[in-house]
Amino acid sequence: MPYYILRRLLIAIPSLLGISVVLFTVLALAPGDPFEELATNPAVPPEVRMALRAKFGLDDPIMVRYVRWISAMAQGDWGYSFVSRINVDDLILQRVGVTLFVIGSSQILALLIAIPVGVIAATRPYSLFDQIANTLAFVGFSLPTFFTGLLFILIFSIWLDWLPFVYQADIQATGWRWYWEHIRQAIMPIAVLGLFQGASLVRYVRSAVLDVIRLDYVTTARAKGLGERVVIVKHVVRNALIPVVTLIALQMPAIFGGAIVTEQIFRIPGIGSLLISSILANDTPVIMAVTFVFACLVVLFNLIADILYGWLDPRITFR
């Protein structure tokens, strides 16, 4: 196994390089440039834009730009943002904490809801509980987060006036008040995201458990006289976890990548809002850095998922 992991890690390097080439090409070829507002302002002559393009190297061939980027990256220089004119790593570091907190909590919330609800729903299929859980899950993923987010704001901030809807990363308070304010402002975004993620996860868990629960070995386990609880937790859930692990591995990189829509709605200064504003402003160095870190996480969690498969089902072998 250690040999396998080492080999996979070594393979990851060229594969990430390959991904970075594709990412860079896509970003470089995508239309647009960072000087939108300069264009409609008559006080800014066009030469200014041309000079800026030249200064940022936007007119160089893509290969030249890629080699410049990758060699700087290899030396730990992440480049600097066209629109903020500061180093990209500083920009990302400023924002990563908030994203980890909000998105991480929402993922945990999603798991905490989805796994028990999905399992209970599957053990009693078509019961009242199952029907209610399913209907709520359908509502959950039929409604986009831009909609539920706004609904939450209307209900809890505007009509009831319980929660603030503008997120502040640096709260000017100390002690327990600081914690209280942080929790208060994070409730809505975490709930919106957690429910959206949880809704689809419930469906997957239910389906996976349902697939397993009908198998003979479960009947055998019951026949042996094991308690229902033990049967479900030890025999059913463990075997049903493969698709769930896959999904979680798919979701984990998002904890870094952020949630673009939700972060926009609640003004959370996270990676997601950085990414979208950089994309809209065509701030290529920032987009490249964020997506590249994201790609590394995708590859890493894919590897972790593969290792977990082997642990969940020892018959799975990798060579």
Binding site: P31, G32, D33, F35, E36, E37, A39, T40, N41, P42, P46, R49, M50, R53, L280, A281, N282
Partner: peptide
């Protein structure tokens, strides 16, 4: 907007190229 108002020479959809009959925007 980021494409429409860009100075990207290669893109046909920018307002200075005006590869359409009619266009509308705000000049500040």
């Amino acid at each position: 907007a980021s494409v429409f108002f860009s100075s990207d020479v290669a893109n046909p959809d920018t307002y200075p190229k005006f590869y359409a009959d009619i266009q509308m925007y705000t000049t500040t």
